[in-house]
Amino acid sequence: MRFYRTTLLILAACLAVSACKKKEEAAPPPAPAVEVSTAPAVETPPAAVPFHVLAVDLGKGLGADKKVTDPTTTFGPKDTIYASVASEGTASGVTLRAKWTYGDAGTVVHDENLSISPTGPANTEFQISKPTPWPAGKYKVEISADGATVASKDFEIQK
């Protein structure tokens, strides 16, 4: 009987020690410290895009959005010729110039300036017309912005 009690006590002690060990093993590792920024999020405004010309289109008609409605590079002797300059970007002031010339000698047909203050995408149109018929031949319109040529388009007037 005494032997039996002693065995029970030893067994109980072993179980207790084992349980404690398991508990220690089961303890989860401490969570890593997470750094939380307290600085407020600052929204960076989008950088202003500098003004630049995207494209120049020629046509016989013009829409309310200043884009050509009948794009072509061949015109008749009584047509009005429109050049639409698509641009994007901002500028406090930029002078667009359309210089229309005729023939290989570059005879000046018309020269027009327009100063604009674009705040984003824009269309600027230049146009020329002539009460008397246009001489047939090859023409060119050269577009410049603040004196720097940015595009040119050749076109033809046929009889």
Binding site: K66, S115, S117, N123
Partner: peptide
């Protein structure tokens, strides 16, 4: 006798001194 013109969807800037190139 060529007549020309220009306009834009962008706001116009302060008018600069206007110039004209003489043609034949």
């Amino acid at each position: 006798d060529v007549e020309g013109g220009a306009s834009s969807t962008a706001p116009l800037a302060e008018p600069a001194a206007q110039t004209y190139t003489v043609v034949s």
